[in-house]
Amino acid sequence: MLQAGLCDLVMDCGRPGRGALGVPAGGAADPDALAGGNRLVGNDADAAGLEIVQRGPILRFPRGAVLALTGAPFAARRSSGVPVARNETLALAPGETLYLDHARHGCRCWLAVRGGIAVSPLLGSRSTFLPGAFGGHTGRALRAGDCLALGVAAREVRLRRGRPPLRDAMAPLRVVAGPQAGQFDDAGLAAFFGGAYRVDAASDRRGVRLTGPAASHVCTELPSQGVLPGAVQVPPDGQPIILGWDGPVTGGYPVIATVIGADWPRLAQLRPGDAVRFATIGVAAALALALEDWDIRDLG
């Protein structure tokens, strides 16, 4: 790594199944985008890549590499100055450099590399967990001078192009109401479901903090209970926090609603200043949307 981006993290599909230890599943904020990139370079879906936020790194590949960029469109070019396309297989010659600049819109992209990033797994995953300083590359974001080894790819390489499911970035985030929606007064519910919020600068992988109309409620502290990423917690000040991928597995603030899995990829692309609105959807309808997949085809 010649120059680090804002926060470059080694990520795979995370470490689900350890909630009883207080360990969140974590992993790529949009696991389908990382999995799509992995398919484009001939990896298994759960190979580790890089999750890149807002401003990317400069990376040199002494032995060349086969790569794919997915997620938000970033200004990206190779040594020759040729721009790098998103969602397709790219082959770099030995010694070539990849320059990743700012996100044109959205927040996060994923760099999948043929063979996957070969850091040692911890608790069943190669994902970085920053709050606990473990996983990934020594538990931290990458820095200039870091060297990452690559593993062996699962399949032969083919030039491919992928298309993610269509998403409307302007539509309200879809939520299933509850479990504590009943603790909110009418004004609080009206504020939450009718209001427009802004993403606060203090947001990170632990939570997306929102500012806007106060979602007032009557409860102060609840018993601690298990929570999922996407749960919208409302502290006493009424400003909602959408729990993120590295958020706590238990919480004691009332949860007014939970963002459905199909809209997690959109959560991953929120950046400070973005507008957010919410709309409710039923559990059955949310389940039916759960398995939208990428369309991936061979080129030529």
Partner: peptide, 17 residues
């Protein structure tokens, strides 16, 4: 996929889909 015990309740986390 996961079970999270807490204060007098358990959260059952279903696998995707």
């Amino acid at each position: 996929e996961d079970m999270i015990p807490a204060d007098d309740s358990i959260l059952l986390v279903l696998r995707r889909g």
